[in-house]
Amino acid sequence: MYTENTPEKLQALQNIRCFVLDMDGTFYLGEQLLPGSMDFIQKVNESGRRYLFMTNNSSKNAPCYVQKLHRMGLNEAGDGHIYTSGQATGQYLNAHFPGKRIFLLGNTFLAQELADFGVTIDDADPEVVVVGFDTTLDFDKMTRVCDFVRAGLPYIATHPDFNCPVENGFIPDCGAIQAFIEASTGRKPDAVVGKPNRPVVDGLLERTGLGKDQIAIVGDRLYTDVRTGVDHGLLGILVLSGETQREDIPASPTQPDLVFGGLSDIIPYL
């Protein structure tokens, strides 16, 4: 059960060298920066630490998020500040299926991210199936991916989210596509890469070159952001600036290591 931030818990922040930040609900909300976000980035930089934005959304690549951050005034942000589930999937494929040809259910942004990791896409004679958040999905693609999954090819998904929040509600995300495939083929993915799963943590450790005790995962969702940290030995920090409310914490199976109202509330402890 979560207890309020204690001096012992807060002391763990002193060892953190990289803050891995969720974006919507943590750093910004929709198209607006959350109060204190820029102050937090400034303090992280001044203290000699790093920050990295991490997202499960595999329908966009790093430059898409860099452009958005620039529109909001974070002009120092570059591709190196973004970590997507697509990038983590590229790392996973190189580690577990090096040189294998893949069938990709995904849009051009995901295809480019995988190509950046040297992954070969082959829609005709693949050896592995990769399913992402495909915003160009059509019935022909669904039929083909189900054929390959039904044939028994290794089957990897970029992330588990069933819905993606948009301005007027939600749209079906990668998890919903996986549910369609399971209904047709009887198979779930052999591995799901994105948070809160182990492959994205392994990729994060490789990407940063840091130890688990040097990384904090910060986000507004207990079941994805915070769970990624606490389930895998990283510091899991909840901010109450987005989806989760304080009254949600006691009943959650995932209990955060630390809780703050927003990013700026972390500043005094850095």
Score class of each variant (00 low, 15 high):
106 G>F: 02
5 N>I: 00
90 G>D: 06
102 I>C: 03
248 D>Q: 02
66 V>A: 03
74 L>W: 08
72 M>H: 03
15 N>V: 15
8 E>D: 15
209 G>Y: 00
89 T>S: 13
55 T>K: 11
234 L>A: 13
99 G>F: 13
70 H>K: 14
179 A>T: 05
44 V>S: 03
89 T>I: 08
113 E>L: 08
51 Y>P: 11
70 H>N: 11
93 L>D: 15
106 G>P: 08
116 D>G: 15
67 Q>W: 04
25 G>V: 05
7 P>S: 09
74 L>F: 12
223 Y>S: 09
150 R>L: 14
207 R>D: 14
43 K>L: 11
263 L>E: 04
88 A>L: 03
142 M>N: 05
221 R>T: 07
161 D>F: 07
183 A>R: 12
229 G>D: 13
138 D>W: 00
158 T>D: 13
72 M>P: 04
65 Y>H: 10
53 F>W: 02
88 A>R: 02
166 V>F: 05
251 A>G: 03
59 S>Y: 04
42 Q>G: 05
177 I>D: 12
23 M>C: 09
17 R>S: 13
236 G>F: 00
178 Q>T: 07
139 F>D: 08
76 E>N: 13
254 T>M: 12
151 A>Y: 03
247 E>T: 10
90 G>M: 01
264 S>I: 14
151 A>Q: 06
11 Q>E: 15
250 P>G: 02
129 V>S: 11
190 D>Y: 06
217 I>M: 14
50 R>M: 12
251 A>Q: 13
53 F>N: 04
256 P>F: 01
90 G>A: 07
192 V>P: 02
2 Y>N: 13
186 G>Q: 00
36 G>C: 11
123 D>A: 02
109 F>I: 04
85 S>P: 04
164 C>W: 04
124 A>K: 04
163 N>W: 12
122 D>A: 07
120 T>H: 12
105 L>D: 14
220 D>R: 08
230 V>R: 00
32 Q>L: 07
169 G>I: 07
64 C>R: 02
108 T>G: 09
32 Q>T: 07
45 N>C: 10
247 E>M: 09
109 F>E: 15
70 H>E: 13
89 T>V: 12
214 Q>A: 14
262 G>H: 09
31 E>S: 10
65 Y>W: 05
136 T>L: 07
185 T>P: 14
9 K>A: 14
11 Q>M: 15
58 S>E: 15
203 G>R: 03
226 V>I: 08
32 Q>R: 09
214 Q>F: 13
91 Q>H: 04
59 S>G: 03
60 K>D: 00
8 E>N: 11
143 T>V: 12
204 L>H: 05
77 A>I: 01
31 E>W: 07
75 N>K: 01
36 G>S: 10
256 P>H: 01
18 C>W: 01
238 L>E: 03
47 S>A: 05
117 F>M: 15
71 R>C: 09
64 C>A: 14
18 C>T: 09
94 N>H: 10
90 G>I: 02
150 R>I: 11
190 D>H: 02
72 M>K: 00
129 V>N: 09
236 G>I: 09
14 Q>F: 06
174 C>N: 07
264 S>P: 08
79 D>C: 10
87 Q>G: 13
247 E>G: 08
